[in-house]
Design a protein around this nucleic acid. Structure first.
Lengths: 114, 114
DNA sequence: CAAAATAAATCCACATTGTAGATATTAGTC
DNA sequence: GACTAATATCTACAATGTGGATTTATTTTG
């Protein structure tokens, strides 16, 4: 049984970006991730912030990317599509569980849906 | 109607520390917060990390502190007790809501309790 | 009461993450 | 080929994360 490194603790924004990737599916890329965060997360961010974070996540093996084919929609550089890697999902699960655990029983204070 | 500054976006660890404060009640202090995080959050941290974070949170007006009276339990410096301030709760709610929102519908992937 | 022991906070330094403006690249349009 | 648009990459700096070393205040012990 191979030794697995413990998944790294994710920063707040890293988590948000990864969650966006999960919701957007395998063709997500910078601009779209940015938009999703603004809509869902109710929080403005620059595209470059997203890009930087995606790059760093990739370096850590938490997401993987591929360059897309040119699309006929008014020019532009090729997209780089990002997807959550298995290891990344592990990390996300761990971080999410951790927060949920800490928040457990405090729903009334945090104003949760139900 | 007074202008209210938007509550700042909290970092991951900041959130965890604030959640710990909420669960521990008004007499929480460094060491105890640390312990709570290790137990609940399933994650080791040094006391100094907690202290630093608490100080910074206080500077931003998100928590408030007071120095306790000496207690008769084998010496030691006086505790500094921390509590979540109203503004801090706002910030925490916002950050938490944001993440929840992004995670909404992904429960099956994140391995949530129910 | 001085010295030792203990509990806690504070200081300091550095690594990682957050964030965005400026710049470069690639592709379509006229 | 010049122009415009979409996107990524580069660069730089601010904020957060993290822990070791040091200091401070207290009790206990000799």
């Amino acid at each position: 049984m191979t030794r697995h490194a413990a998944p790294p603790v994710l920063g707040e924004f890293e988590q948000i970006v990864m969650l966006a990737l999960l919701r957007l599916g395998p063709d997500a890329y910078g601009a779209v991730v940015c938009g999703e965060i603004e809509r869902r997360g109710g929080r403005g961010v620059s595209v470059s912030a997203v890009h930087t974070t995606l790059e760093r996540l990739e370096q850590k093996g938490l997401v993987k990317s591929r360059v897309g084919e040119p699309t006929p929609q008014r020019g532009g550089k090729r997209k780089r599509h990002y997807e959550v890697a298995a290891f990344g999902l592990k990390a996300l699960q761990a971080s999410y569980r951790s927060i949920r655990n800490m928040a457990d029983g405090l729903e009334h204070l945090l104003g949760e849906p139900a």
